[in-house]
Write a protein that binds this DNA or RNA. Structure first.
Lengths: 171, 171
DNA sequence: TATTGTTATACTCTATAACTATA
DNA sequence: TATAGTTATAGAGTATAACAATA
């Protein structure tokens, strides 16, 4: 499919896609401009890096950051149902279903029908789930967070965590 | 809180969804556990908040953070082609095509075939694009970043930006 | 042969409406 | 009527292979 993007641009004379321009810019570094000062931009790039590292550090257990957070929350909050866990993590209930299906099929957790309210599914870890979670915590602490401490230093790491928590809470 | 959330579950008998459990947990706050100390978790939540605020602040111009960053980079780096701009922003070239189609259809930028290398499309803003970008910058500075300064304070904001840049670079 | 822009495609995330079974 | 879990679905975002034009 060619030439569908012809777009008549008049604004001044910006040129159409067919026009030609004499560009002899040398391959210097691209300027980031105001992007360097944009907090959201650095936040996003840093987040992608850190998630990549997290996945790499727990690769042997095949857990995503989201799965790890779910296991952690189930373990720390016995007796909670799907809606409560999902809401806490900002996961929409419909999207939580497939996630739990996956964790349950790997026998890391189970849904148990509540006696009080038979609509609810109480979530709990299996023994296997507790084992995997414990291993994941160790990998995260000794590899992932340890590396963060190296790069930032403990004081900076704590300060960063505090500011991010502030943003997530008060912003 | 009352009951024991009975049911000792083990790997061999994970329990089926039909089973019943006696849960009388009261609706106290859910414990975040080690999640509060996980930098990646706070980073992700903060990033989502900040992107939401960015979108809200420039809603009148209908620009996403990604679109804003593309316009900014094109403006600051005249004569660059699609691959160079996309790579700088971590956007894959195939995914950059639809994004540029959208920006070009809104007459914010144009592709111009390079005279040196007729495979390349040099990117440049239209007058309209420059106007929209200037307005977006103003909204970002006076609404979005100003609010960040209020919540964090200028010193903390600068420190946060520095640490995030460090992570994006050295991690 | 290699590269630029492109198409096609697929997989993950996220978001909304509506169904079911319970309450 | 309302709620918990679920299904279906749609839209972003992201990833890879391959093709045409050009180098």
């Amino acid at each position: 499919m060619t030439g569908s993007r012809a777009a008549e641009l008049n604004a001044s004379k910006p040129g159409k896609a067919g026009d030609v321009v004499d560009d002899h810019e040398e391959a210097g570094q691209i300027k980031m401009g105001e992007l360097s000062e944009l907090l959201g931009y650095s936040l996003k790039r840093a987040q992608l890096r850190i998630f990549d590292d997290f996945i790499r550090c727990v690769a042997s257990l095949n857990l995503t950051p989201a799965q790890f957070s779910v296991l952690l929350l189930i373990d720390r909050n016995p007796g909670r149902n799907q809606t409560e866990i999902a809401n806490t993590l900002g996961i929409l209930r419909p999207n939580f279903v497939a996630m739990l299906d996956s964790l349950e099929s790997r026998e890391l957790c189970v849904r148990v029908r509540s006696a009080n309210d038979r609509r609810s599914h109480i979530l709990m870890l299996t023994d296997n789930g507790r084992t995997i979670l414990a291993r994941a915590k160790k990998l995260v602490a000794t590899k992932h967070e340890a590396r963060l401490n190296e790069v930032l230093g403990p004081a900076n790491r704590a300060a960063l965590l505090g500011m991010l928590a502030t943003l997530a809470r008060d912003f």
